[in-house]
């Protein structure tokens, strides 16, 4: 059984609460709570089925970007010679194409989510390593920043589809 979908069901619940229940509740704390709950249900109704594709696309993008950052970081490590960047580099060399979670032919949102957290951690570590060791500033460091901020922009655009989805007409 696939109909009603979870989205249809939740959307109907949100509409019922908004049209039938809310008008019966006087202004005040309870009404605010119900309004907030309706808003959350309505958002989840729009995005429940997008989480998997969102995480998949995010993971792909981060992995590809990390692949581009890898040689840049190698240059940073070579030019600046600091240990923290080298340690991140080692982790990065092991990360882009391998998840610590088993990935089947159709990975679950849970598996994709775990991979996403893993990749997010690498992105955070790269920045912290670069920030910690700033005595020597190589040119490649700026190129890493450019790659990272462009990636963040793409990540946020994707995230917006989940956190603030356009209403279906």
């Amino acid at each position: 059984m696939i109909r009603p979908t979870i989205g249809e069901l939740l959307s109907g619940v949100a509409t019922s609460l908004r049209e039938r229940v809310l008008p019966e509740i006087p202004a005040g704390t309870t009404r605010r709570q119900i309004q907030a709950a309706i808003g959350i249900i309505a958002r989840v109704a729009l995005v429940w089925d997008k989480t998997g594709p969102y995480l998949y696309a995010d993971n792909e993008d981060i992995a590809v970007t990390l692949g581009r950052i890898l040689p840049l970081l190698e240059r940073v490590a070579a030019e600046e010679g600091n240990a923290r960047v080298r340690a991140v580099l080692t982790r990065l060399q092991q990360t882009p194409n391998h998840s610590s979670e088993p990935v089947g032919p159709c990975p679950s949102a849970e598996v994709l989510g775990a991979r996403n957290l893993e990749l997010q951690e690498v992105l955070a570590e790269i920045q912290e390593a670069l920030h910690e060791a700033t005595a020597v500033q190589s040119v490649a460091r700026n190129e890493v920043s450019v790659e990272l901020y462009a990636l963040f922009r793409r990540m946020l655009s994707r995230e917006l589809e989940i956190t603030k989805p356009p209403r279906r007409s």
Binding site: S145, F152, T163, K164
Partner: peptide
């Protein structure tokens, strides 16, 4: 419940941060 889903609001704040970031190279 009013604050339950507040994590979903930060995306737009982060986008605003990037929009205002003055660093030319970025």
């Amino acid at each position: 419940i009013v604050i339950a889903d507040r994590a979903a609001t930060v995306t737009s704040y982060l986008i605003q941060f990037l929009d205002w970031l003055p660093e030319p190279r970025v």
